[in-house]
């Protein structure tokens, strides 16, 4: 029925996973359509599962304390005001923004340099370095809390956002570098060489020719770094004991672990935590799948 689909490019019919086969009526069309209900029914059920929790937190954030109404009406912003000032989410938010942006910048720059070396050169320790990158993806930060704490204590960086920024960057690096080197490999080397012939330095050729082509990949990697450091909380919990320095996830954890949880404040705090992530993803969504399929598939 809906042959006038929104999409401009028809997609080959992949079969629904758990539905019995229905013989195509006739092969007059090159690809037959899956019955609509086989798409909309499971999708709707899954969407209910996905969206009810989001609705639930919105409901608690917006309805007055003690209300049991299932719609957030009368609407109130008292929980947001309370969490932002009394529970210091304003400060936490600022700290999280610093950590997120600094991690994004550091991860992208360091991974770009390393990724370029991996994509364009053969050098002695390359194999060993790749092996180290792949293996370090298996080393969990959670298991290194104690030695990391000691290192940062040695460097007098406990209670400084720098410790969290370094730790987040380090654990983002391996994957980011592998992804970026794959993106760079997809850019033909001859483009750079042509620029050298025209008298460009290697660096300038990279910046003017390669970098613009890496945009989807860099956006994917950078937003991962940002979102990951925004969301992650163990490092901040461990390295930042001073309340002034803490980040949003630690603030949420404090609300969660209180003896009697203030549900309205928790919900409002959760929404504050989610907003930047939602904004980032709304902005980058179209690059994300491209970035993934370009970089990750051969990874």
């Amino acid at each position: 029925m809906t042959t006038n689909a929104v999409e401009t490019r028809p997609v080959a019919p992949a079969p629904a996973a758990d539905e019995p086969p229905r013989r195509p009526k006739k092969a007059q069309r090159a690809w037959d359509e899956v019955p609509r209900w086989q798409i909309y029914l499971p999708l709707s059920i899954y969407l209910v599962f996905t969206l009810v929790p989001f609705y639930w937190i919105l409901l608690f954030a917006l309805r007055p304390a003690g209300s049991t109404s299932l719609v957030p009406w009368p609407m109130t912003f008292e929980h947001f005001e309370k969490v932002w000032t009394e529970r210091s989410f304003g400060t936490y938010f600022e700290n999280s923004v610093y950590v997120g942006i600094a991690t994004l910048v550091m991860t992208t720059l360091v991974a770009l340099a390393g990724g370029y070396a991996l994509a364009r050169f053969d050098f002695k320790i390359k194999r060993g370095f790749m092996l180290a990158l792949l293996c370090s993806q298996f080393v969990p930060g959670a298991l290194l809390l104690v030695p990391l704490f000691q290192i940062f204590a040695e460097l007098s960086m406990i209670n400084s956002l720098g410790s969290v920024i370094i730790a987040e960057t380090v654990f983002q690096l391996p994957l980011s570098m592998i992804l970026i080197s794959n993106f760079i490999k997809n850019v033909p080397y001859s483009l750079e060489e042509a620029a050298w012939v025209d008298g460009c330095s290697r660096f300038r050729a990279f910046v003017t020719i390669v970098l613009p082509l890496l945009r989807p990949g860099l956006i994917a990697v950078g937003s991962f770094a940002f979102v990951h450091s925004w969301n992650h909380f163990l490092f901040a919990l461990m390295f930042l004991s001073n309340q002034e320095k803490q980040t949003i996830p630690v603030g949420l954890n404090t609300l969660l672990s209180a003896d009697s949880v203030d549900l309205g404040a928790l919900a409002a705090g959760g929404i504050i935590a989610a907003v930047p992530v939602v904004v980032v993803f709304a902005f980058i969504q179209k690059w994300l799948i491209t970035g993934f399929s370009a970089g990750a598939v051969k990874g």
Binding site: P53, N231, L256, V277
Partner: peptide
């Protein structure tokens, strides 16, 4: 993209 802590809160 929702964090572990936020998932817990929800």
């Amino acid at each position: 993209a929702v964090s572990g802590v936020l998932t817990s809160a929800i």
